[in-house]
């Protein structure tokens, strides 16, 4: 039996709001780097078992085998522990980096320097998302430096998320990234233990209570 986890509609909306604040900060930082409008939003989130997460990300692969994904991961621990991974299909990661850098490189893979730029983009996104979450929950976390991965979604999830897979759930954020008329869809995955999810739910409710109290 796969673990399931759900939030109420109100809790779900509150979490989407928190992540939208987070990616809003990230978009502002990126705009400052490229001196151009970068917009980002989180239209939806979902909680899915680890196995299904790999399947969802591999979708659209067709006959040519699983799609290659480009990921940037960071490990966070403290009040709760999670592996956060920003993921794009490989061709989209080329598009994002080259749009951000403003230079066309006729190569089919990210160069070493471009991989580092991708790491910085991931670092900005993940720190903003987790930072906003930590601030709102009034908790402190510690983060690692970003790591770059490329491979199938299954390989990336396995490489980053240590420990048993059976009791982990993935909180999946759908990210819309808009730069210079290019719209790119990606994901941020938070790999969490079931126990952390209940804590997350409690924190969301504390936040909702505070917001309602102030209103």
């Amino acid at each position: 039996m796969l673990p399931t986890f759900t939030l109420s509609e109100l809790e779900n909306d509150a979490l989407i709001e928190i992540f939208n604040i987070g990616v809003g900060h990230a978009a502002a930082s990126m705009s400052a780097i490229v001196n151009e409008a970068v917009r980002m939003s989180v239209p939806s989130i979902s909680f899915i078992p680890r196995v299904e997460a790999a399947r969802l990300l591999g979708a659209g692969s067709g006959d040519s085998g699983p799609e290659r994904i480009c990921g940037v991961s960071q490990h966070y621990d403290g009040a709760f522990e999670t592996e956060a991974i920003l993921m794009f299909p490989e061709d989209k990661s080329l598009e994002i980096v080259r749009l951000m850098v403003g230079e066309a490189v006729p190569l089919k893979e990210l160069t070493e320097m471009e991989q580092e730029a991708m790491c910085e983009i991931g670092n900005i996104m993940l720190n903003s998302c987790v930072g906003t979450l930590a601030n709102i929950f009034q908790r402190e976390l510690h983060g690692s430096l970003p790591q770059y991965h490329v491979g199938t979604s299954d390989q990336i999830l396995s490489a980053t998320a240590a420990g048993s897979q059976a009791d982990t759930v993935v909180l999946m954020l759908h990210i819309d990234f808009l730069l210079e008329k290019h719209q790119i869809h990606g994901y941020v995955a938070f790999v969490l233990a079931i126990s952390a999810l209940h804590d997350l739910k409690d924190q969301i409710n504390l936040y909702i209570a505070r917001v309602m109290g102030q209103a």
Binding site: V97, V101, E116, E120, N123, N127, P146
Partner: peptide
């Protein structure tokens, strides 16, 4: 006012590390 200052703020006050790539900075 730039990325370096933002990264220092993040490290000192949020406890998060930052990476500034050569390509973007």
């Amino acid at each position: 006012g730039g990325r370096v200052e933002a990264a220092i703020q993040y490290a000192l006050y949020n406890n998060f590390p930052s990476l500034l790539s050569q390509t973007l900075n």
